[in-house]
Design a protein around this nucleic acid. Structure first.
Length: 596
RNA sequence: GGGGUGGUAGUUAAGUUGGUUAUAACGCCGGCCUGUCACGCCGGAGGCCGCGGGUUCGAGUCCCGUCCACCCCGCCA
């Protein structure tokens, strides 16, 4: 091929025996037996065993060469004895006898081993990310990400989507997350913002008549990190379609996800169409709008059963507005007392914040548990019926103010699923959460505000806005959830200025305020906008699921750490005073901060 | 901004109720070994125990402060 190699390190087979070859790569591993010396040579494609014996003139020098030096060797491909085949590498039936070698890229001692891939502090991995990326595990994940991205482009293009680029330097958006700002040199005191998402641009492309848009879009939000949320920047598979209803968007995503998960994972995947769960049903049954459907526990509301009951602790709380949520667990009656006590301790810890956790155990025709003797037979029968109890089942009860009870029940559901090993293994369970409420009331003031995206179309349109109590209005707003992980929100957009002004009016905005904040969009919508809608699944989270990673940084080649620093490039960092001057910027660093 | 966990050799960790010279594995350096593929064996070097202060005859260990990392809450329309 060229001066560096005739073959890659993953290429040689028995059919190449006898050939003179040139290989280049990293010195992956070495085994020195005194008279004979083995090298595993590694490149992107694989590993080839090299061998040299002590009669070679360069033997001594080569045996002192350390791992991760980049070398080139020339030699002859030889057959290995069958008993020395290495089935774990593709080239395991052959080896190359080194005739000559030279060092292409010398390596100083490493801060941590590329091989074997022992655990290393993440800070160190990030500081030397290029070494980390040499390791097989991360190397493969990044390759998977690339393959997934390519497949998405293929699949969406086949479905008639067109890929666009939208501006990176744009305007600060009035709502949502904190923006990253970029000072303008030409316009002193003014700033660009990096886009939190190309939301407005993609809608404008629909107004422009492009019909089906997509983009592997970089998004920037200046918010704090989580294990499944990068600080600063992340990527969305952003798409938008004109003249569509909700189900059209679902069909595109179901096709895409079914294909991606079948192609890149061996786990079982739900068949399309994915289950649709109305928001209110999800909040009741799972306590969250991102339910993990691998967990079989389904929550019930038993407020009415306990209202005015003999169990006065619950009855009194219900009288002051509390609700009761029940979590039936099948065949859990044999758990030891310590398990139930442990659940109570955990539930009442500050992490969860429950006042208590009641439970009943049905075992051999008897009902046991601290509250068993307090409740009448009649109520016990009602519980039994509501929770569809059969012998051996256990029910946990949470009683609290509505929002808190829902949250606690969700946590208890997750906890029980984990502790009792109820989570269905090796599968992806998808669902759409639909029928989000358009508005919500502030708990304290009662003020009406948008509960989600103000640009979603209300179900029922103008008529609903005019004639339905605001809190009862639903939106064409949806989320797709997989294994408890929110992959994306989307919506059929509100493309009608009249409906938009009305929706904003309900949320307390005057037309003037709407014009001031979203004038650009409104102007476009006044000049002939098609009905349209879309969605934007997070690429990083998608790859995370496919690669079975617990942390987003494992699917990003060059991630920032939790404090939004790039330890490899040393960003962010102070800049030269002259740069600030050109930008008309003066910094005021808080006292005690060393500016790093 | 708040809570949790952690910080000991290049790396990963152990270090007991405070008590002689702070351990081990891998890596590194030197030596031995002709068929390994986590090669094996012998020897050696390597430490601001995150940093600062305090208690004590004596601190890796106890106390206070501080810095750093990760996880969580807030935040993420």
């Amino acid at each position: 091929m060229n001066q560096y190699r005739t073959h890659t390190c993953g290429a040689l087979r028995s059919s190449d025996i006898g050939k003179d070859v040139t290989l280049s790569g990293w010195l992956h591993n070495r085994r020195d037996h005194g008279g004979v010396f083995f090298i595993d040579l590694r490149d992107h494609y694989g590993i080839t065993q090299l061998v040299v014996q002590s009669d070679a003139p360069f033997f001594d020098a080569l045996t002192h060469l350390q791992k991760e030096n980049v070398i080139r060797i020339k030699g002859k491909v030889e057959k290995r004895d069958p008993e020395t085949y290495n089935p774990r590498i593709d080239t395991g039936e052959v080896e190359v006898r080194i005739a000559e070698y030279d060092i292409l890229g010398p390596a100083e001692p490493l801060p941590f081993a590329v091989y074997p891939e022992d655990e290393v502090a993440e800070e160190l991995r990030l500081t030397y990310r290029f070494l980390d990326l040499r390791r097989q595990q991360l190397h493969r994940t990044i390759m998977l990400r690339s393959a997934v991205t390519a497949r998405i482009r293929e699949r969406l293009t086949a479905q008639g989507f067109t890929e666009f680029q939208t501006p990176i330097l744009t305007a600060s958006s009035p709502e949502g997350a904190r923006d990253f700002l970029v000072p303008s040199r030409l316009h002193p005191g003014s700033f660009y913002a990096l886009p939190q998402a190309p939301q407005q641009f993609k809608q404008l492309l629909m107004v422009a008549g492009f019909d089906r848009y997509f983009q592997i879009a970089p998004c920037f939000r200046d918010e704090d990190a989580r294990a499944n949320r990068s600080p600063g920047e992340f990527y969305q598979v952003d798409l938008e379609m004109a003249f569509v209803e909700q189900n059209d968007v679902f069909a595109v995503i179901e096709d895409l996800f079914t294909d991606l998960f079948a192609t890149f994972s061996t786990k079982r995947v739900d068949a399309a169409p994915f289950r649709r769960i109305p928001y209110r049903e999800a909040m009741l049954k799972y306590g969250t709008d991102k339910p993990d459907l691998r967990n079989p526990i389904v929550i019930r509301d038993l407020t009415d059963v306990f209202r005015g009951s003999e169990f006065s602790i619950f009855a009194k709380q219900i009288d002051t507005g509390a609700i009761v949520r029940a979590l039936p667990v099948r065949k859990a009656c044999d758990q030891p007392k310590s398990f139930f006590n442990g659940m109570i301790d955990w539930a009442t810890s500050s992490e969860v914040g429950a006042d208590g956790l009641a439970y009943l155990i049905w075992n051999n025709g008897e009902v046991k548990g601290p509250i068993a003797k307090v409740l009448s037979d009649e109520r016990m029968a009602q519980i039994r019926e509501a929770c569809e109890i059969t012998d051996g089942d256990v029910v946990f009860f949470v009683c609290d103010k509505p929002q808190k009870a829902v949250d606690i029940a969700a946590k208890v559901r997750t906890r029980l699923g984990e502790l009792l090993n109820l989570i269905e293994p090796d599968c992806f369970r998808f669902c759409w959460i639909v029928d989000y409420p358009m508005f919500e009331a502030d708990e304290v003031s009662g003020a009406i505000s948008f509960s989600h995206n103000p640009f979603s179309m209300p179900q029922g349109g103008m008529d609903a806005l005019q004639n339905t109590p605001p809190l009862d209005i639903l939106a064409y707003q949806y989320d797709i959830v997989c294994n408890g992980e929110e992959l994306s929100s989307g919506a059929i957009r509100n493309h009608r200025p009249d409906i938009m002004y009305k929706a904003f009016q309900i949320a307390g905005y005057t037309p003037e305020e709407v014009d001031a904040k979203f004038g650009g969009m409104i102007k476009a919508f006044k000049l002939g906008a098609p009905p349209h809608g879309g969605i934007a699944p997070g690429l990083d989270r998608l790859v995370m699921l496919l690669a079975d990673c617990q942390n987003l940084r494992e699917v990003i080649a060059f991630p920032m750490n939790q404090r939004a620093q790039d330890l490899l490039m040393d960003a962010p960092r102070p800049v030269a005073p002259q740069q600030l001057q050109e930008l008309h910027i003066r910094t005021v660093v808080p006292e005690g901060n060393n500016n790093r």
